[in-house]
Design a binder for these strands. Structure first.
Lengths: 172, 172
DNA sequence: CAAAAGCGATTGACACGTCTACTATTCGAA
DNA sequence: TTCGAATAGTAGACGTGTCAATCGCTTTTG
């Protein structure tokens, strides 16, 4: 299912368009990843009433000293920008999953603190969430396919990092 | 609830948790796909001021008879639900990329019609968009990796389709 | 020390998606 | 034929993300 016809045409790389096959694989790649991501997210939501964002934040706080973290630390840790974190944390605070406290050492700062509710929700969610990932992703693939998925991801990232525009976009 | 205690028999497949390596690949898989998707979307936005959703709709209308389609047909064609399409089309109408007309044969219905502006925007966007996909995705991978990416996607979809819950979730 | 520059975090505006509810119309069966 | 169910589309509420602006506090520096 993957025979590519030999390409002997000496067009410049950046001018060439993808073939129909390449485009199909592109779409399958993006759409499948999104489908699987959505599936796992839906499971997490169903089982534990948590979004993936909630989970990421609760995980970070669970592992943090005193179950608390400075807002920007947390943002850096999970790779979000401060605005996104602030919005999300606002919503989580309304649901009593975390709370905000002012920072003793820097009055500009805020600390995000895990609440009991939040800790409990996180702990209830972990095992089913990980099992779902195993069920939907790991168990769907052979060992070779799993390794190949990792290789592909690594290659894409490496290529993106070497692209000038990619670097600019990623830096924001 | 309490059946997780020490067990004397081999664990069932669905009970096992992913290993650290498996989890790392899971994260790389999901995050990389998202990164690459976002990169291509940003390029499309930069070059043509179109979102991926805009592009999908404009593509469908470009190929449609008379550059127009019934709303639900369009939705089915691109795999969106009617509400999502209606919201998106509302935003696109404000930007004069499409317009809505009432349907002659069914007064409940609406037709989405490509405007000149929309057609022009789409045609300007196509080649750069496809080239970007080639640059960021196809050129990043060897032929084997590309084929493997397709295989992985196929395996994941097949597995999802065979999961009872997946089928339910996907059907909505 | 005071003004300027920098930093931490929040906010508002908007795009996008999902879910549910609602309106209007068409269709199907009693 | 009429009335209830199904269908087409829209609309509102809300979660989520990004971007730019803002606000208060800290640090730097003239």
């Amino acid at each position: 299912m993957g025979e590519m016809t030999a390409n002997t045409r000496p067009q410049r790389r950046t001018r060439r368009m993808p073939t129909a096959d390449e485009l199909r694989i592109w779409r399958e790649y993006i759409e499948t990843a999104e489908l699987v991501r959505a599936h796992v997210a839906a499971s997490l939501q169903r089982e534990s009433d948590l979004s993936t964002g909630d989970y990421v934040i609760l995980l970070a706080l669970s592992e943090a000293d005193g179950h608390r973290m400075r807002s920007s630390e947390l943002a850096a840790h999970i790779g979000w920008d401060r605005s996104r974190l602030s919005h999300h944390v606002g919503r989580m605070e309304r649901r009593d999953l975390i709370r905000r406290e002012e920072c003793a050492t820097d009055s500009r700062g805020a600390e995000i603190v895990l609440t009991g509710t939040g800790a409990e929700a996180f702990h209830r969610s972990t095992a089913p969430h990980l099992r779902e990932i195993r069920t939907v992703f790991v168990d769907a693939l052979t060992a070779e396919q799993l390794a190949a998925a990792g290789d592909v991801a690594r290659a894409l990232r490496a290529h993106l990092a070497s692209e000038p525009r990619a670097a600019i976009a990623a830096r924001r």
